[in-house]
Write a protein that binds this DNA or RNA. Structure first.
Lengths: 291, 291
DNA sequence: CAAATAGTGTCTCTAAGACAATATCAC
DNA sequence: GTGATATTGTCTTAGAGACACTATTTG
């Protein structure tokens, strides 16, 4: 085993010949210059998920749901005019969570319901501006909040419907659509460690930086969290029907579930209230709360 | 929705009055000074896990296993003479994974079998030297490799047996022991998001920085990964008996499993070879490989 | 043969999936 | 009444846990 001398502390004044036997911590810190060694810029990138309910033709039928994420069109180089994840630089006196919260609130115009770290991206070549590492987050935003703020077709921030399919040999296709705009990236599953799957980008599909890989990682984590109902409730208001909750899980995981079985499994995670929906054109449903 | 102007790019020359209509990416990048805005120091901290088999009194009995982690005694301020996780500062042209690999190889003297990110720690006050954020990793190191390198009781790097119990109301006790040295930290489970549980430190137990919380987070992630056999194989040589594999899972998760049931469940993850153990004082066992 | 681990067979119980049947509302 | 969703019941099957039993080695 090597000695702890292997752990050099960047920035401590060298060659000053400090030979005091009893150097105090205060002395040490007052001499310490942390800026002496190179430091990277640190950013956060946020994959903000929302479930949009589509307009409906038949007054009786439930509306279909689509999973979507927020993208921002870059106004400056590099990747000028490409779509990118919202995010920004970490400031002193804030945690990476604070930073992500601040950035997504600014860009989406609404407060996220939850914010979950999904990984650090630190490939040396990932940003042409220089040494920039990024902490990625998955965030869940409720449709109600977004609807209040409204949108603008000319805005440079838009919600893209997302679809992500993994085929047999580990290749995945990520498709993002907003109106006429369609971005299609190709990724390869690289490794899955400790519940986090990472991806190699084969085609970026016009997304800026390594954002296609970040999106794939975040969606994979979201799906994993949806399996045990962990990430479902944040998409809905406080009171919800079991069918609405089921549709959230089906939308995220891209599966179909039989209502009877879903109700049985989810019953451990919810509490019923004495309220009901009304005016839906069919039997009213009991509203539930998260347990 | 706010405009993308919210996403300022730190370091782009301001006030230069660049009014060109067609600024090229090359022009932009050549003017770009990434060092203009404050940047944190970035470190990695590694929770290196090893399973130690204890010496045995009875020639027939299997040896008991203990889960242990590597700690390093700090030679300098701050936290001088406290035990800390191995780790160090991120360098340009390396990923955080590269950095963790480099640091743990230096400090443990052996190559880790695996390296898995468990989270970023970025509390502004976490390091008295200044603005330092850290990416934590869990690493698995095989006992065979460590035994080859050997140890030294006077060394400042030592393997501590670890025990971690969560009681009913969310309080957890972390105990680390090496010879006469016993560190005992108290933590409170704070939140569990996306499969990552984070902890508040109530008593650091003499561990440096926020390392008690990092250790608790890493161990929780390791245990989660052990549930589906993901992190078990890295503790063992390429060929192993099913009993050895079972003991790894029992040691990590601190549980007891009936051999018959373990064998049935694990059979999907292993392939049998035609080799057997010998000279163990009892019936020889077939060796298996990971599937 | 004694003591220890290696390995198999099987019973029970629980949970998941499939599906049938009934309930209730707006129009 | 029609057409949609809401809700409950139950049959079947797969898997986990418990446990009894047999096999094989060294000293």
């Amino acid at each position: 085993m090597s000695s702890a001398a292997g752990r050099k502390h960047a920035g401590f004044g060298n060659g000053k010949g400090n030979t005091m036997k009893k150097q105090t911590e205060k002395d040490y810190l007052s001499q310490y210059d942390i800026g002496k060694y190179p430091r990277p810029s640190v950013t956060t990138d946020i994959v903000a998920f929302m479930i949009r309910s589509e307009e409906n033709e038949n007054y009786k039928m439930d509306s279909a749901n689509k999973l979507s994420i927020l993208l921002v069109k870059r106004a400056v180089h590099p990747f000028k005019d490409c779509w990118a994840l919202p995010g920004g630089f970490l400031k002193p006196d804030e945690t990476v969570e604070d930073c992500a919260f601040r950035e997504i609130t600014e860009e989406a115009g609404v407060t996220p319901v939850s914010l979950m770290p999904v990984g650090v991206f630190s490939d040396p070549g990932r940003d042409p501006r220089g040494w920039v590492i990024s902490q990625a987050f998955a965030s869940i935003i409720s449709e109600d909040a977004v609807r209040l703020v409204g949108g603008d077709d000319a805005s440079d921030a838009q919600w893209f419907d997302i679809s992500f399919e993994r085929d047999a040999d580990g290749k995945s296709i990520l498709v993002l659509e907003y109106g006429e705009t369609k971005l299609q990236a190709v990724l390869r599953e690289e490794s899955s460690r400790f519940g986090r799957t990472s991806f190699l980008i084969e085609e970026s599909g016009g997304l800026a930086f390594d954002h296609a890989g970040i999106i794939a990682t975040a969606l994979t984590a979201l799906r994993e969290g949806a399996r045990n109902y962990e990430t479902l409730f944040d998409f809905l208001p406080e009171r919800f029907t079991l069918t609405a909750l089921q549709k959230v899980q089906e939308t995220i995981m891209n599966i179909q579930i039989l209502p009877a079985n879903f109700r049985r499994k989810v019953s451990d995670y919810v509490v019923e209230t004495d309220e009901y929906t009304q005016g839906a054109g069919h039997r009213p449903a009991k509203l539930y709360r998260r347990k």
